[in-house]
Write a protein that binds this DNA or RNA. Structure first.
Length: 216
DNA sequence: ATCCAGTCAC
DNA sequence: GTGACTGGAT
């Protein structure tokens, strides 16, 4: 028999919580690379609820990359305007779609570097798109994931993603890791409890989290 | 009033 | 590396 280490128990607690509490969004476990990519771009600095509110309309109007590529900035802008950043993102998304159609046969490249080379797609969106589409164990770190991991393992917030990266590199190779369930659960834990001002009393990780244990 | 967030342009 | 984009949280 072997003992479970701190990474395994973290994964297990996070994922177990997620089974019953994961938010249900149409872009989770979506099998369309185009929809995942565009959605991740729309989610940058934008609340999930706002994206959710326009999601069906957006993809009903633009069901494919080529449909999107034939649109105009103002039409895209009018659909995404409740999200903010609409003018910037409308032209960004349109240019992205046109470029995908013209240079890549309308096919979203499925490796991080090729994705991140596209304008409007940074490291985070590229990595998240690959992982959430294929289940590949890529590093997906946004401020929420970073905050949960920093607090749980070190008890304090750091201004860069370095320590989270190191810890995730230990976690990702674990057997039996459902990486999508794990990341979605982590994101939702961050959203529900591990805000800038946390609600540790309600958090399922409170008895093992360094941040909660050491602040008393 | 100030801070914060992914990304791009600088 | 810094500022800007825009809206939300504090």
């Amino acid at each position: 028999m072997r003992t479970t280490n701190k990474y395994e128990s973290f994964v297990s607690n996070v994922t177990k919580w997620g089974i019953d509490h994961l938010g249900v969004f149409p872009w989770r476990f979506c099998e369309d690379s185009y929809k995942i990519l565009i959605t991740e771009i729309l989610l940058v600095r934008t609340s999930r609820d706002k994206v959710n509110a326009i999601w069906q309309d957006f993809f009903a109007r633009f069901p494919t990359i080529s449909a999107l590529a034939k649109s105009t900035p103002s039409e895209i802008s009018s659909i995404i305007h409740p999200l903010g950043l609409q003018r910037i993102r409308a032209s960004q998304i349109l240019e992205l779609a046109i470029r995908l159609v013209e240079e890549l046969d309308g096919i979203v490249p499925l490796n991080i570097d090729a994705l991140a080379r596209l304008k409007g797609v940074g490291q985070y969106v590229a990595s998240a798109t690959i992982c959430f589409l294929t289940g590949e164990k890529t590093l997906v770190i946004d401020s929420n994931i970073n905050r949960v991991i920093d607090r749980f393992f070190s008890g304090e917030d750091h201004d860069n993603y370095k320590s989270s990266m190191t810890i995730l590199e230990r976690i990702l190779p674990l057997d039996n890791l459902d990486v999508r369930m794990f990341y979605f659960s982590l994101i939702d834990l961050g959203y529900e409890y591990c805000r800038r001002v946390p609600d540790c009393e309600k958090c399922v990780l409170r008895t093992s989290c360094s941040y909660n244990i050491h602040r008393h």
